[in-house]
Amino acid sequence: MSKTILKLEHITKSYQDGSGKNLVLNDVSLDVNGGELVAIVGPSGSGKSTFLTIAGMLLSPDAGAITINGERVSDSKKKNWTKIRHEHIGFIFQSHQLLPYLKGLEQLTLFQDKKNRDKVNAPDMFTELGIEKCKNQYPSEMSGGEKQRIAIARAFINDPDIILADEPTASLDGARGRQVVEMIRLEVKKREKAAVMVTHDERVLDLADRVYRLENGALTQNNEK
């Protein structure tokens, strides 16, 4: 059993909603191990995105702690968050969010730190993900699936500890969406990363190691698997 990389403990978050308070996350805890892909499903507005932004050091919880690889990052000051995200977290967004003015390979290399070049080889990732032909293409010349695969590669490029994916299949059709999640799974297993994927795409849940449902601020594990 691989060790726990991402540890979320007793996370609580509420928003001011008119006169009342809307409790989005109520004492939520989750552990993710290296090489494990966890999926979180739930109706829209259930707080999936909030959960991801807190895990991704973009938003601070009202209460609770976040530990990445033994480091309690939730204690650090906000101005250090960018650096924490840079070093520990790889994001895959709903839509690819590539920069329109960079060619495929540059999308990776221009954001990769020198020290990570030996650990993660950008051209190799293109081969692994089957998008070699996109190395010298601008995003406008690629298909949706290809762009999302480059986005996956970009998430891994600085050798992060955790991978957070926000609806990675939302802009793709069924078959392509499934391929993309397969790719994420492949890289997570190979590189021993802890991955959390928020999705409402029920067809790809079988690719996750564990599936949780977020509803009414509480996280419960699906039993069917």
Binding site: T82, H86, G90, F91, F93, Q97, L99, F111, R154, A155
Partner: peptide, 14 residues
């Protein structure tokens, strides 16, 4: 703004 938001999210500093 969105491009800059993405870059900030993936850890590109100011």
């Amino acid at each position: 703004r969105r491009q800059f938001g993405v870059m900030k999210a993936i850890g590109v500093g100011m």
